[in-house]
């Protein structure tokens, strides 16, 4: 299971970085979203998919040893919620940028770098 996840993460990161380096805004946002998914999957994998013990409930009322640690999943949930908000804002922003500049090419946005 771990190896499958590891390969998926690798592919997602590669695709995300490739997309970020394209010139189009839309691909930039897609690339960022893919990187975000890769990172979430990575936390999930690092949190030990099957091993480990739930950190909060212990003793006789606790879950079985086979249960996964819930904390990474809580972390991922938070990261997903935050990612949702940020990406929604990013999409609105690129829509505004597109309507103002009438272009989808990042290379034309050099006004704030040079005079």
């Amino acid at each position: 299971m771990d190896i499958v996840l590891a390969i998926t993460i690798g592919v997602l990161v590669a695709a995300g970085i490739y997309m970020i380096q394209r010139r189009s805004f839309v691909k930039l946002i897609l690339g960022i979203a893919m990187l975000g998914h890769a990172v979430n999957l990575m936390i999930f994998t690092l949190g030990r998919v099957t091993r480990g013990v739930p950190p909060i409930i212990h003793g006789e009322h606790g879950l079985d040893v086979g249960a996964a640690d819930p904390l990474p999943q809580a972390l991922i949930l938070t990261a997903i919620v935050i990612g949702f908000g940020v990406q929604a804002f990013a999409i609105i922003l690129i829509k505004r940028v597109y309507s103002v500049f009438q272009t989808d090419n990042i290379d034309t946005l050099v006004n704030t770098d040079f005079e």
């Binding site: 908000g85 929604a88 804002f89 999409i91 609105i92 829509k95």
Partner: peptide, 10 residues
């Protein structure tokens, strides 16, 4: 509220 603000502005 937030989702509708986003969706409507899109």
């Amino acid at each position: 509220g937030v989702t509708m603000i986003i969706l409507m502005s899109l």
